[in-house]
């Protein structure tokens, strides 16, 4: 993938398949490695990307491969930012049942949005609910915690 200028986001349109999403996910993580993100940040970004793409492709586009996924991203040495939009009707993330509540603990799905919100620093949905914007700021290594250590087989 060509390196994108730091301040101008790259825009892409993907086929609505997990294969296409996985390819892009790998490229984005490689770019984040090149920009110096550490292992913990990469884990968080990877998890958020996987959950967001699954939501967009399987729930938003309802698995219809003819529907597209629209991606806009910018990766700088200090922040990873991405917007992922699908062509579905959207949903209201704040209306989702809390999967941590006792009555929902044994439900088999519904945890992706919670994980995205937990692992990323900023998460916003558009009003229609078919686009999520996520930001991860690069962590600074602290005492006893080397989150900026070079990734080991993260990709």
């Amino acid at each position: 993938m060509a390196a994108n200028p730091e301040c101008s986001p790259t825009q892409l349109e993907l086929p609505g398949t997990m294969e296409a999403a996985e390819r892009l996910c790998g490229e984005l993580l490689q770019e984040a490695v090149r920009k110096g993100f550490g292992e913990e940040d990469l884990f968080a970004i990877h998890l958020a990307l996987e959950e967001a793409f699954v939501n967009a492709i399987q729930h938003g586009n309802q698995g219809d491969p003819s529907k597209k996924i629209h991606v806009q991203y910018s990766i700088t040495p200090s922040r990873f930012e991405i917007s992922i939009a699908d062509e579905g009707p959207g949903f209201q993330p704040d209306a989702l049942p809390d999967p941590r509540e006792p009555e929902n603990l044994y439900k088999c799905s519904g945890r992706g949005v919670l994980l995205i919100r937990s692992f990323m620093d900023q998460v916003q949905y558009n009003s229609k609910g078919n686009q999520v914007r996520m930001v991860k700021f690069k962590s600074k290594p602290g005492p006893g915690k080397d989150s900026n250590s070079p990734p080991q087989n993260v990709l």
Binding site: E50, E51, K107, S109
Partner: peptide
């Protein structure tokens, strides 16, 4: 080393 929420769903089932 890495898994997503779909594995949690599998474990619950």
């Amino acid at each position: 080393r890495f898994l997503t929420s779909s594995v949690l769903g599998l474990l619950i089932r």
